[in-house]
Design a protein around this nucleic acid. Structure first.
Lengths: 198, 198
DNA sequence: GAAATGACCAAATTGTTATTTTGGTCATTT
DNA sequence: AAATGACCAAAATAACAATTTGGTCATTTC
């Protein structure tokens, strides 16, 4: 749209975005103050409001950027030569590992549990929706190619994510946590084999 | 152990349990006071402490009773003549419907979301564990009878509950909520068909 | 004169203290 | 011996003061 990065003495918008990304990841949504973002970005507070109409909009842009990173990770992991099932597992693994390592996600999760900050909840939901939408796209492709049965792509993607998360998140239940290989094997068992053609 | 219900002018223990069950269901854990329970039960406060050493123990007994009710619902639903898959679906449907209609569960869920009361969390977890354990028992049976593959019963029961809940709880996601038939059909698709022998 | 700024303000958050409520006890009553 | 409710320390809540925060805008900067 309007990426004026021709070479300018200072790209204040970029400075703001970087400072905000660091602050949201380090302190969460509510503990991030516009004053500190301005200070960290080396910019007057009023300047932030020339790019973003308020704190919420700034935060939403940070989340959008993160979703972009996740998509990039997925695209980098995708190998068109591989069958759907293998790509699905590789992508889930890579994307969710990246997600769990990303400071912003970790901090927002903690903030939701501790304070229930609505903005943090919203951010995490946006990330989850984008992952589901991305998987749904590949499910659609796989259906077209006849690799899996004809199922509702959005519902299937939703179930796949939930199942994968259930497997990785078994901490508090009878079992001790599953290691990566066990997660993969069980995901195949509970999800993919039920979808196999024929 | 010590069920002295020979016929006594008043069974104070029972009165306390009934008053407590009503109060926990109506007001949740923290908003239930021992004073009110005593008053409602028509009993002196000190009397409660002759049966239960503290509020937590009283609450745990109420939860145990609820779990007993859930087991009764399950047993009533179980039809030994039917194959495993049918019984599983019927039981999940009946038990979770009962659970969602039970005032105590509904209230505790709300309390967890609103205040994060640890006792409420613990109570809900106990209910969930008991459901998983109950299903796991039937999974074991089904394996012995050769009705399903040889899988880890506890893990499978856990996954079954999570999948069923994911299907019933799709409110906030793309789709509008699924009706009962759709839930059943999709549960078969995503879970059972992957487990079918052969 | 357009872009950038920070002092400024109402509203929200946090810190503090006073008041009330609650879980649990135990001397007294039944 | 079983039941009770006045009683108490500790915890929760209310009431209020002090601080912080998101957002604005008159002024400054280039």
């Amino acid at each position: 749209m309007d990426t004026t990065s021709e070479r300018r003495p200072v790209d204040r918008r970029k400075q703001v975005l970087e400072a905000a990304a660091r602050s949201f990841a380090a302190f969460g949504y509510k503990a991030t103050t516009m004053d500190r973002v301005a200070k960290t970005a080396g910019v007057g507070k009023g300047t932030i409001y020339t790019f973003f109409s308020n704190k919420e909009e700034l935060f939403e842009q940070i989340v959008k950027d993160l979703i972009g990173e996740l998509k990039a990770v997925a695209e980098r992991t995708l190998d068109p030569a591989l069958p759907f099932a293998d790509n699905l597992l590789r992508i889930l693994q890579q994307v969710l590992a990246y997600r769990d390592r990303h400071g912003l996600i970790v901090k927002l999760s903690q903030e939701v549990k501790e304070f229930g900050t609505p903005m943090a909840t919203g951010g995490l939901e946006a990330v989850e929706r984008s992952i589901i939408a991305y998987i749904a796209g590949h499910v659609t492709e796989a259906i077209d190619k006849g690799e899996i049965r004809s199922v509702d792509p959005a519902l299937t993607a939703y179930m796949m994510l939930k199942m994968y998360l259930a497997l990785t998140d078994m901490g508090r239940h009878l079992h001790e946590p599953l290691d990566a290989d066990e997660v993969l094997a069980n995901f195949r068992l509970y999800c993919l084999e039920g979808l196999a053609v024929g």
